[in-house]
Design a protein around this nucleic acid. Sequence first.
RNA 1: GCCAGCAUGGCGGAAUGGCAGACGCGGCGGUCUCAAAAACCGUUGAGCGCAAGCUCGUGUGGGUUCGACUCCCACUGCUGGCACCA
Length: 804
Amino acid sequence: MTSTYDHRALEAKWQARWQETGLDEVDLVGARKPYYNLMMFPYPSAEGLHVGNMFAFSGADAHGRFERMRGFDVFEPIGFDAFGIHSENFALKVGRHPRELIATNVTRFREQLMRLGAQFDWSKTVDTTDPAYYRWTQWLFLTLWKGGFAYRARRNVKWCPQDLTVLADEQVLADGTCERCGAQVTERELEQWFLRITAFTERLLANLDGLDWSENTKLLQRHWIGRSQGALIDFPIEGKAPLRVFSTRPDTIFGATFMVLAPDHQRTLELTAPAVQATVAEFIEEAARRRISGQRGDESSTQGVALGSDAINPLTGKPIPIFPSDYVLSGYGTGAIMAVPAHDQRDHSFALQHHLPEIEVVSGNDSPGPHGGTGALINSAQFNGLKAPEPAREVITAALVEAGFGQAHITYKLRDWGISRQRYWGCPIPAIHCPTCGVVPVPEKDLPVLLPYIEDFRPLGTGESPLARDPEFFRTTCPQCGGDARRDTDVSDTFLDSSWYYLRYPSADRDDVPFDPALTRKWLPVTYYDGGNEHAVLHLLYSRFVTMALEQLGYLDFDEPFTQFRAHGMIVMGGAKMSKSRGNVVVPDEYIARFGADAFRLYLLYLGPYPETLNFVDTGINGPHRFIIQVLRLLDQVEAESMATPEPANLARARHRCIRQVTVDTPERKYNTAIAAMMIFVKRLREHDGPVPKAALETLALLLAPYCPHLAEEIWERLGGAYSVHQQPWPDADESLIEDDEVVVVICINGKKRDQILVPAGTDAETLEHSALALPRIQQWLEGRKPERIFVIPDRQVNLVLPG
RNA sequence: GCCAGCAUGGCGGAAUGGCAGACGCGGCGGUCUCAAAAACCGUUGAGCGCAAGCUCGUGUGGGUUCGACUCCCACUGCUGGCACCA
């Protein structure tokens, strides 16, 4: 054997072998220790897999391979999340049909993924655009609908008046313009489908405590759900219904000197005095314009006009004026607030602008002016002296309840999930609109509702999906009355496709059920989910919701889909995200072609801690590549030996140290330090003069298996190991061989290193102290002074502390 | 504005409160070569010194400790999330 490293041949050889032998196809039925190793499936863009994907898959695959060698039956599927507005927009741009485009992209992705050498089970894969998949996405929708989790409602969508198309929120730039044409975006009200995720708000929040997820991910979800505890308070209005507000600080009600309504609050006009009708109407109109264009800002938050009518502060009995202003939103709480300018920054700014009085009701704060309000109540009648926020909040809420002015209440930021998309490239919503029966579900036997191939998939300009252009698609008969009816022409949000794909994988080859009950019981919930934190909220939250709903409807016997979730980091270049416009995109194919998948995987994982944002450095791959060549050279040496070489103690120590480090670091996802440990071991072997023991290379093959699956397999085979290295048990470190016989103990004076001694490991403190004091250099530094105190840390350090 | 996280050589990054900079990249010097590449060997935080060695050094300022990259307080900067959420 030569030591030239032909990674192409080597990797092709093993990939073919794995495929022929079905090494990575798990016996889902017979598996004894199921381990579902899931990673977020990619969106097959036209650019191909990027470095970030490769990084994530390398890490997740290393994890899966490690668990496999630890004795688990690891199921590691992959698929394609191929519907969506990105494909559609790209297709529009290049003038090709998304169906052809996606087919090409998927093929390319598949090849790239194959070349990475991950242990994907390709016999169970999904493509969300395949009718065999989206048939069940439609089933899911119908099931949720029948279960009471889907409803229709009117809601505003973003609309570009120039492109004549509905936009996704993220296609609207911060200044309210369209990301594609730059026109000012407006809104349109359309009737759409919603999924009742708020049915599970409390559970989605409470369950988080028990989930083994990356802390940051849980935190993002908590914030998104946004639970606020407070009270609903009614402010009476003479001759009219009272005005209801939500406040988290009912204890500050004595400081409420005015009220603010969202400009689009239902009662704004009703509460407007005749004299100012015109002014208020104008203000409301302007505010609407600001809201739609996203141009609400610091200036507009102090703008407002008095409605000319007063509300009564229920506890003081005093009339206070009412204003509409941008800084109160109609969509949160009741869309109205009691303003407490002495204790709220926004209310304070507004009060300054409009010369409204401030009443301080919480004292005991060091800083004057508006503050959060922690202290004791003042100016609050019989409540003076109570500590705020608690127990004042509780006491005043009780008083309000007693007097019939309020009730304790909790609000959330979480909203129901709007899933209608007025676009083409998505899963058709299986609903039929009948003039007599109303909205009726497509019968399950008629699924899938196929997405038709339409030549002209450009946006229609009416606010409807391009599917509304295809009568053959939408003309149908009502399943209930048989009369003429029209299909829903909207498609569903891609997050619906991905909200259940993990349920599908084990049953991907079944066309009779979305997910087989027995397989599901055996393999789910997912053991380990690896993914980017950019999906921390939406995808993960939607998946949790779907799981909860299906559990409630009796389809699942668990209510959380992912037992363990770990977020991985990102790869950036020069501190910036890779993007075409920056011209800093690294194409992984070139690296793999030149250095091989093993070297590339090794390099990506060696960059730094897997959960962090990491910097791609162009030349960095040379190190891992060299390392692989050095390992192969050692292998040549071992093979050249005719006789088995006994393993010297120092090499055994180095080997077991390496095992220990890799074994500890790998499951903690400290891939970078695990790889460093292997590099150190190889360095020791290279420094060693004399024959290299076979045991060294055997161990390396095993430890390298999760990182460089092809190389590991090659080494294992050449050493005569039985196929496959990936089915071998993970090696154990022998702690008794690891400890050094001798250790260096550092001698410090006042914490500064002054000398060191080599002593047998485990030398006791007293001996160390004596040896240290006897050292000539130390005596020189001591200049006859006696140490005041002496600290001895066995095997490490002696610190002599001089007086003064 | 609020909430997280991070800050260490020229670069990526290591360090249960106990020798800061492991490991790797890059640089420099050398071996091999007609030459170059590759590979291999040595060297590489800064300053001072002929040298033994000394001093300084983990964003800034304080603190706790015999001892702090590590713990505490304040600040600055960067990254991510939320953003008039009452």
